[in-house]
Design a protein around this nucleic acid. Sequence first.
DNA 1: CACGAGACCTGTTCGC
DNA 2: TGCGAACAGGTCTCGT
Length: 267
Amino acid sequence: MPELPEVETIARSLRPVLVGKTVLAADLLWARTLSTPSPRAFKQRIVGQEILEVSRRAKYLRLRLSEDHLLMHLRMSGDLQMKPGRPDPQKHDRLILSLSGDCALVFNDTRKFGRVWLVRDPDQVVAHLGPEPLSNGFTARLFHEALGSRHRQLKPLLLDQTFLSGLGNIYTDEALHLARIHPQARSDSLDQDQVERLWEAIRAILQEGIRRNGSSIDWVYRGGEFQNYFRVYDRKGQPCPVCGAAIQRIVVGQRGTYICPDCQPRE
DNA sequence: CACGAGACCTGTTCGC
DNA sequence: TGCGAACAGGTCTCGT
Protein backbone atom coordinates (compact mmCIF):
# COMPACT_ATOMS: atom_id res chain seq x y z
CA MET A 1 0.00 0.00 0.00
CA PRO A 2 2.65 2.47 0.67
CA GLU A 3 3.10 5.44 -1.59
CA LEU A 4 3.89 8.93 -0.34
CA PRO A 5 0.49 9.65 1.30
CA GLU A 6 0.39 6.31 3.11
CA VAL A 7 3.93 6.73 4.46
CA GLU A 8 3.15 10.30 5.48
CA THR A 9 0.04 9.05 7.30
CA ILE A 10 2.08 6.43 9.13
CA ALA A 11 4.76 8.97 10.06
CA ARG A 12 2.14 11.31 11.49
CA SER A 13 0.48 8.59 13.53
CA LEU A 14 3.72 7.13 14.88
CA ARG A 15 5.46 10.42 15.67
CA PRO A 16 3.64 11.29 18.92
CA VAL A 17 3.97 7.78 20.36
CA LEU A 18 7.55 7.03 19.29
CA VAL A 19 9.40 10.22 20.09
CA GLY A 20 11.09 9.97 23.48
CA LYS A 21 10.99 6.18 23.64
CA THR A 22 14.15 4.09 23.95
CA VAL A 23 14.82 0.82 22.12
CA LEU A 24 15.22 -1.96 24.67
CA ALA A 25 15.42 -4.98 22.37
CA ALA A 26 15.33 -5.93 18.70
CA ASP A 27 13.85 -9.16 17.40
CA LEU A 28 14.69 -9.83 13.77
CA LEU A 29 12.43 -12.58 12.44
CA TRP A 30 13.36 -12.51 8.73
CA ALA A 31 17.03 -11.78 8.15
CA ARG A 32 16.70 -10.26 4.66
CA THR A 33 14.41 -7.53 5.97
CA LEU A 34 17.56 -5.95 7.38
CA SER A 35 19.66 -4.36 4.63
CA THR A 36 22.45 -3.10 6.82
CA PRO A 37 24.32 -3.67 9.09
CA SER A 38 24.59 -7.35 10.05
CA PRO A 39 21.92 -8.65 12.46
CA ARG A 40 24.49 -8.83 15.23
CA ALA A 41 25.74 -5.28 14.74
CA PHE A 42 22.16 -4.06 14.35
CA LYS A 43 21.03 -5.36 17.72
CA GLN A 44 24.19 -4.23 19.41
CA ARG A 45 23.94 -0.70 18.06
CA ILE A 46 20.21 0.00 18.25
CA VAL A 47 19.57 -1.15 21.81
CA GLY A 48 19.77 1.79 24.17
CA GLN A 49 19.19 4.48 21.54
CA GLU A 50 16.40 6.97 22.00
CA ILE A 51 14.01 7.94 19.20
CA LEU A 52 14.42 11.70 18.75
CA GLU A 53 12.48 12.39 15.55
CA VAL A 54 10.10 10.67 13.11
CA SER A 55 9.97 11.89 9.52
CA ARG A 56 9.34 10.83 5.93
CA ARG A 57 11.46 11.16 2.78
CA ALA A 58 9.68 9.96 -0.36
CA LYS A 59 8.40 6.49 0.58
CA TYR A 60 10.95 6.03 3.36
CA LEU A 61 10.18 6.39 7.02
CA ARG A 62 13.06 7.89 8.99
CA LEU A 63 13.63 7.57 12.72
CA ARG A 64 16.42 9.77 14.01
CA LEU A 65 17.98 8.03 16.99
CA SER A 66 20.57 9.22 19.51
CA GLU A 67 23.46 7.93 17.40
CA ASP A 68 22.06 6.51 14.16
CA HIS A 69 19.17 6.76 11.74
CA LEU A 70 16.71 3.91 11.27
CA LEU A 71 15.22 3.97 7.76
CA MET A 72 12.35 1.76 6.68
CA HIS A 73 10.79 1.09 3.29
CA LEU A 74 7.48 -0.80 3.22
CA ARG A 75 7.61 -1.73 -0.49
CA MET A 76 4.47 -3.65 -1.52
CA SER A 77 3.01 -5.12 1.64
CA GLY A 78 4.85 -3.68 4.63
CA ASP A 79 3.02 -2.34 7.63
CA LEU A 80 4.09 -0.73 10.91
CA GLN A 81 2.08 -1.01 14.09
CA MET A 82 2.41 -0.06 17.72
CA LYS A 83 1.45 -2.78 20.15
CA PRO A 84 1.23 -2.76 23.93
CA GLY A 85 3.52 -4.88 26.09
CA ARG A 86 5.83 -7.53 24.62
CA PRO A 87 3.75 -9.00 21.78
CA ASP A 88 4.37 -12.53 20.52
CA PRO A 89 5.40 -12.63 16.85
CA GLN A 90 2.42 -12.94 14.54
CA LYS A 91 2.31 -14.32 11.01
CA HIS A 92 4.50 -12.22 8.66
CA ASP A 93 6.06 -10.15 11.46
CA ARG A 94 9.65 -9.44 10.33
CA LEU A 95 11.06 -7.13 13.02
CA ILE A 96 9.91 -6.24 16.49
CA LEU A 97 11.47 -3.38 18.43
CA SER A 98 10.64 -3.47 22.13
CA LEU A 99 10.46 0.03 23.52
CA SER A 100 10.43 1.80 26.85
CA GLY A 101 6.94 2.55 28.11
CA ASP A 102 6.00 -1.14 27.75
CA CYS A 103 5.18 -1.09 24.03
CA ALA A 104 6.63 -2.33 20.76
CA LEU A 105 6.97 -1.26 17.15
CA VAL A 106 6.16 -4.16 14.81
CA PHE A 107 7.20 -4.38 11.15
CA ASN A 108 4.85 -6.83 9.43
CA ASP A 109 5.40 -7.61 5.76
CA THR A 110 3.65 -10.46 3.94
CA ARG A 111 5.72 -10.37 0.77
CA LYS A 112 9.09 -9.79 2.43
CA PHE A 113 10.05 -6.97 0.03
CA GLY A 114 10.30 -4.34 2.78
CA ARG A 115 13.72 -3.24 3.99
CA VAL A 116 15.29 -1.62 7.05
CA TRP A 117 18.63 0.21 7.33
CA LEU A 118 20.48 1.38 10.42
CA VAL A 119 23.03 3.98 9.33
CA ARG A 120 25.03 6.90 10.69
CA ASP A 121 24.15 9.08 7.72
CA PRO A 122 20.68 8.75 6.13
CA ASP A 123 22.07 10.00 2.80
CA GLN A 124 23.64 6.58 2.42
CA VAL A 125 20.10 5.41 1.70
CA VAL A 126 18.11 8.35 0.32
CA ALA A 127 20.68 10.50 -1.48
CA HIS A 128 19.74 9.08 -4.88
CA LEU A 129 16.12 10.22 -4.66
CA GLY A 130 14.59 12.87 -6.88
CA PRO A 131 12.70 15.89 -5.53
CA GLU A 132 9.82 15.74 -3.07
CA PRO A 133 6.77 16.61 -5.16
CA LEU A 134 5.18 18.64 -2.37
CA SER A 135 8.30 20.64 -1.53
CA ASN A 136 8.71 24.30 -2.45
CA GLY A 137 11.78 23.41 -4.47
CA PHE A 138 9.72 21.34 -6.89
CA THR A 139 8.49 24.06 -9.24
CA ALA A 140 6.58 23.76 -12.50
CA ARG A 141 9.54 25.35 -14.27
CA LEU A 142 11.96 22.76 -12.90
CA PHE A 143 9.54 19.98 -13.76
CA HIS A 144 9.28 21.28 -17.32
CA GLU A 145 13.06 21.25 -17.72
CA ALA A 146 13.39 17.79 -16.24
CA LEU A 147 10.68 16.33 -18.47
CA GLY A 148 12.23 17.93 -21.53
CA SER A 149 15.65 16.51 -20.78
CA ARG A 150 14.36 12.96 -21.21
CA HIS A 151 12.61 11.09 -23.98
CA ARG A 152 10.57 8.53 -22.11
CA GLN A 153 7.04 7.32 -21.63
CA LEU A 154 5.54 9.57 -18.99
CA LYS A 155 4.26 7.04 -16.49
CA PRO A 156 7.44 4.98 -16.06
CA LEU A 157 9.36 8.25 -15.72
CA LEU A 158 7.03 9.49 -12.98
CA LEU A 159 7.47 6.18 -11.19
CA ASP A 160 11.27 6.49 -11.40
CA GLN A 161 12.22 7.54 -7.86
CA THR A 162 15.44 9.17 -9.02
CA PHE A 163 13.40 11.46 -11.29
CA LEU A 164 10.62 12.33 -8.85
CA SER A 165 10.14 10.63 -5.50
CA GLY A 166 7.01 9.44 -3.74
CA LEU A 167 4.64 8.56 -6.57
CA GLY A 168 3.54 4.95 -7.00
CA ASN A 169 1.14 3.14 -9.29
CA ILE A 170 -2.09 4.51 -7.81
CA TYR A 171 -1.26 8.17 -7.47
CA THR A 172 0.45 8.30 -10.87
CA ASP A 173 -2.66 7.02 -12.63
CA GLU A 174 -4.85 9.39 -10.64
CA ALA A 175 -2.65 12.39 -11.41
CA LEU A 176 -2.43 11.61 -15.13
CA HIS A 177 -6.20 11.34 -15.33
CA LEU A 178 -6.70 14.62 -13.47
CA ALA A 179 -4.23 16.26 -15.86
CA ARG A 180 -5.93 14.60 -18.87
CA ILE A 181 -2.67 13.18 -20.21
CA HIS A 182 -2.01 9.73 -21.63
CA PRO A 183 0.50 7.67 -19.60
CA GLN A 184 2.47 6.80 -22.73
CA ALA A 185 2.92 10.36 -23.93
CA ARG A 186 6.61 11.14 -24.39
CA SER A 187 8.00 13.23 -21.55
CA ASP A 188 9.51 15.78 -23.94
CA SER A 189 6.34 16.13 -26.01
CA LEU A 190 4.26 18.01 -23.41
CA ASP A 191 3.47 21.65 -24.04
CA GLN A 192 3.59 24.30 -21.34
CA ASP A 193 -0.08 23.92 -20.48
CA GLN A 194 0.15 20.14 -20.13
CA VAL A 195 3.22 20.38 -17.92
CA GLU A 196 1.49 22.84 -15.63
CA ARG A 197 -1.63 20.69 -15.46
CA LEU A 198 0.43 17.62 -14.59
CA TRP A 199 2.50 19.48 -11.99
CA GLU A 200 -0.65 20.80 -10.37
CA ALA A 201 -2.39 17.40 -10.59
CA ILE A 202 0.46 15.52 -8.93
CA ARG A 203 0.45 17.90 -5.99
CA ALA A 204 -3.33 18.02 -5.69
CA ILE A 205 -3.71 14.24 -5.78
CA LEU A 206 -0.96 13.66 -3.22
CA GLN A 207 -2.44 16.30 -0.94
CA GLU A 208 -5.88 14.75 -1.22
CA GLY A 209 -4.37 11.34 -0.48
CA ILE A 210 -2.76 12.69 2.67
CA ARG A 211 -5.94 14.51 3.69
CA ARG A 212 -7.83 11.21 3.43
CA ASN A 213 -5.10 9.33 5.34
CA GLY A 214 -4.00 7.33 2.30
CA SER A 215 -5.64 4.34 0.64
CA SER A 216 -6.55 1.04 2.28
CA ILE A 217 -6.83 -1.95 -0.04
CA ASP A 218 -7.09 -5.69 0.39
CA TRP A 219 -6.08 -7.30 3.63
CA VAL A 220 -3.99 -4.36 4.74
CA TYR A 221 -6.21 -1.85 6.43
CA ARG A 222 -4.84 1.33 7.86
CA GLY A 223 -7.92 3.48 8.23
CA GLY A 224 -7.36 5.50 5.07
CA GLU A 225 -10.29 6.28 2.82
CA PHE A 226 -8.79 7.55 -0.42
CA GLN A 227 -9.71 4.25 -2.08
CA ASN A 228 -13.30 5.47 -2.02
CA TYR A 229 -12.37 8.42 -4.21
CA PHE A 230 -10.31 6.78 -6.96
CA ARG A 231 -11.01 8.36 -10.33
CA VAL A 232 -9.59 5.51 -12.42
CA TYR A 233 -7.37 3.17 -10.39
CA ASP A 234 -8.80 -0.36 -10.19
CA ARG A 235 -12.01 0.84 -11.88
CA LYS A 236 -11.83 -1.04 -15.18
CA GLY A 237 -15.20 -0.93 -16.98
CA GLN A 238 -16.68 1.60 -14.59
CA PRO A 239 -17.63 5.09 -15.77
CA CYS A 240 -15.11 7.92 -15.82
CA PRO A 241 -16.21 10.42 -13.16
CA VAL A 242 -15.66 13.26 -15.63
CA CYS A 243 -17.17 12.05 -18.91
CA GLY A 244 -18.78 8.68 -18.17
CA ALA A 245 -16.76 6.66 -20.67
CA ALA A 246 -15.73 3.16 -19.57
CA ILE A 247 -12.35 3.09 -17.88
CA GLN A 248 -9.76 0.88 -19.54
CA ARG A 249 -6.91 -1.17 -18.11
CA ILE A 250 -3.75 -1.20 -20.18
CA VAL A 251 -0.17 -2.20 -19.37
CA VAL A 252 2.55 0.45 -19.37
CA GLY A 253 6.09 -0.39 -18.35
CA GLN A 254 4.83 -3.74 -17.04
CA ARG A 255 2.45 -2.05 -14.61
CA GLY A 256 -1.34 -2.25 -14.71
CA THR A 257 -2.54 1.19 -15.75
CA TYR A 258 -6.01 2.71 -15.70
CA ILE A 259 -7.11 5.45 -18.06
CA CYS A 260 -10.17 7.12 -19.47
CA PRO A 261 -9.83 6.70 -23.24
CA ASP A 262 -11.80 9.90 -23.87
CA CYS A 263 -10.20 12.22 -21.29
CA GLN A 264 -6.67 10.90 -21.94
CA PRO A 265 -6.36 10.48 -25.72
CA ARG A 266 -3.13 9.24 -27.30
CA GLU A 267 -2.63 12.44 -29.27
C1' DC B 1 19.76 6.12 -22.85
C1' DA B 2 15.27 3.67 -23.07
C1' DC B 3 12.95 -0.41 -22.27
C1' DG B 4 11.53 -5.23 -21.43
C1' DA B 5 12.19 -9.44 -18.76
C1' DG B 6 13.12 -11.62 -14.63
C1' DA B 7 13.91 -11.67 -9.65
C1' DC B 8 12.49 -11.06 -5.01
C1' DC B 9 7.84 -13.09 -2.02
C1' DT B 10 3.01 -14.50 -0.42
C1' DG B 11 -1.72 -14.36 -1.05
C1' DT B 12 -6.12 -13.66 -3.57
C1' DT B 13 -8.89 -13.81 -7.54
C1' DC B 14 -9.85 -15.22 -12.22
C1' DG B 15 -10.75 -18.49 -15.93
C1' DC B 16 -11.47 -22.93 -17.64
C1' DT C 1 -14.53 -28.35 -6.84
C1' DG C 2 -9.84 -28.11 -8.60
C1' DC C 3 -5.93 -26.10 -10.36
C1' DG C 4 -2.89 -23.22 -12.76
C1' DA C 5 -2.50 -18.51 -14.36
C1' DA C 6 -2.70 -13.76 -13.55
C1' DC C 7 -2.37 -10.19 -10.57
C1' DA C 8 -1.04 -7.08 -6.40
C1' DG C 9 0.35 -0.34 -3.64
C1' DG C 10 7.94 -1.48 -5.23
C1' DT C 11 12.54 -1.66 -6.74
C1' DC C 12 16.74 -3.87 -8.44
C1' DT C 13 19.65 -5.99 -12.04
C1' DC C 14 20.56 -7.70 -16.46
C1' DG C 15 20.38 -7.93 -21.52
C1' DT C 16 19.22 -5.74 -25.98
